[in-house]
Amino acid sequence: MEAAMGLMRRIHPKNTDTALSALLSLLPHHSSDLLSQVDQPLQVLCDVDSGKEFILCEYNRDSESYRSPWSNKYHPPLEDGSHPSVELRKLEIEANDVFSVYRDQYYEGGISSVYMWEDDNEGFVACFLIKKDGSKSGQGRRGYLQEGAWDAIHVIEVGPEEEGTAHYCLTSTVMLSLTTNDESSGTFSLSGSIRRQMNMDLSVSEGHLCNMGKMIEEMESKLRNSLDQVYFGKTKEMVCTLRPPAEVVQMRLPDS
């Protein structure tokens, strides 16, 4: 299992799908571990009742069906699919509304879904998903990339309430892929995924949703900075160390 995860860290993110199905066939007995630990590009289905799209992941799946956060129904229909409790479903509906507004403000489009379920230790888990397609065919306002996708997965484990506070553990993954192909610059593909964790103990006086929202907002801004500066900066730096740009060479010449 450790070796399998090691392979997933080295394989090009654009090949995640192929790599995962290869590992699943090699290690069928680890399939549930693999499916929960390997982040895959998010898929989307259309809710037949509301006509709105929703995001598929391990957390809204039951056998071969996925539960829509809009109608609370499984697609394709499932007789005895699991559902959150009435109370948690109320919070889930509210979270979906709030998160849609957040997504629209920050992402100028895209699709979002929130799923919640009870966990074994009297708390609950919430999963916030965002998918944004920035390609030519996508609905992004500035979409001009040949292929581009931003998938964000935030999973928050909320512990049981104790003396007015609760423990929140947020694990976030952002998967980003950019591909261009034009005459002047050839093919160019930059893709990656990064994962971060954040733990907080917060007062629940303002409600779980407010706390989770603040954590996600903070985390997203951190992840964006890491992607921009550290990761893409690093790959650029690497290219420059392989073959320093001409200016640098010229600047060095007078010294030598």
């Binding site: 860290r9 080295r10 993110p13 160019f188 930059l190 990656g192 790959t235 690497m238 392989l242």
Partner: peptide, 19 residues
């Protein structure tokens, strides 16, 4: 020409370019 870069601290980011 082919350029590749792989950055893998707390993640996996790869650049692949060809011309």
């Amino acid at each position: 020409m082919q350029v590749g870069a792989h950055y893998f601290e707390e993640g996996n980011v790869q650049l692949d370019a060809q011309h």
